[in-house]
Nucleic acid binder design. Sequence first.
DNA 1: AGCTAAGCATTAGCTAAGTG
DNA 2: CACTTAGCTAATGCTTAGCT
Length: 335
Amino acid sequence: MARKNLLADLIEGGHSSLAGEAAAAAPEQRVPTLGSRGAVGAMSRSLEQLSAERDAAKVLSERLVSGQDVVEIDADLVDDSIIPDRMKGSDANFASFKESIRTRGQLVPALLRPHPTQPGRYQTAYGHRRVQALRELGRPVRAVVQDLSDDELVVAQGKENGEREDLSFIERARYATLLEDRNFKRDTIMAALSVDKTELSRLISIYRAIPAELSDAIGPAPKVGRRRWLEFVEHLGDRKPAKTLEALLGNPKFLAGSSDDRFRMALSILTAREGKTAKATVWTANDGKRIAKIDRSPSRFILSVDEKAAPSFGDFVLDRLPDLYEAFRKSKEGA
DNA sequence: AGCTAAGCATTAGCTAAGTG
DNA sequence: CACTTAGCTAATGCTTAGCT
């Protein structure tokens, strides 16, 4: 519970006056029209960016208020975090982000710590994209510098991603696994990713079950969540992925598609080989009505009755379930 | 064609039970 | 005790069908 409300606490705690304003203004927020669609659409992206930066500012505000000065540091002296969190090709908006930094300057400071082994250098805890953009622009980084332990660094980095919620499932799984490989405690990883132990366990086991070449080839797949990655791993099984990989990497369609598309293709190759992966089927009665849908899996048989096509048929079946089951048992005994 | 509501699929967070 | 597995479900996103 505390974990779930972490973000809310941060925002409300630090900016209760803001929240109050928002609540007071709410009744008047029903603006009838906002001009033409085109104008609104063009604005939305920069608005998103603005709000993302404001959110980041809220999280940093505590540190700023606590008497930390913002200093300017040569971007070339700033290294990335000890653990990379993003996969290749996951940041499509970087160019426009960089452009906004170029035109408007760096609105929100980054959070750095002194490099543990190289005096005079720094490591990024929070604000990787800003640092990267400023590095490319050849500008100094405005930053708060604090002595942070490895744990604190990793948790701060996780917050950055959590704020924007822009790490996909597999990226979080990868990040969690990298952290574990670096011997971070489960508690720390849980804090860094804002997940519970259940989810953390799944993240790590799923990522470890997929050969790195395969997950790298697929990429971040932002629209694919736990459920389908789990399905992916189940179908992968003990099978040698070499053939799957070969089939995929040799396919120009695979390489041309989006990361989500690549995931879909990879999954369909895995499931196709399985032969009998029955998809949901519809049972049609003699009168032509599509009465029920059947979903099969190794562990389930789901029968759903269409209440519109056959009102109260479900109850009818339910009433007779005991008799049906009895008949079923007898038929088994006989066999 | 454009809009809306309904239906369906998916994600992600939770509890409970199992395992070593 | 620390972690894993299974299963449920609210919230969200997407698709489809029906309406104006």
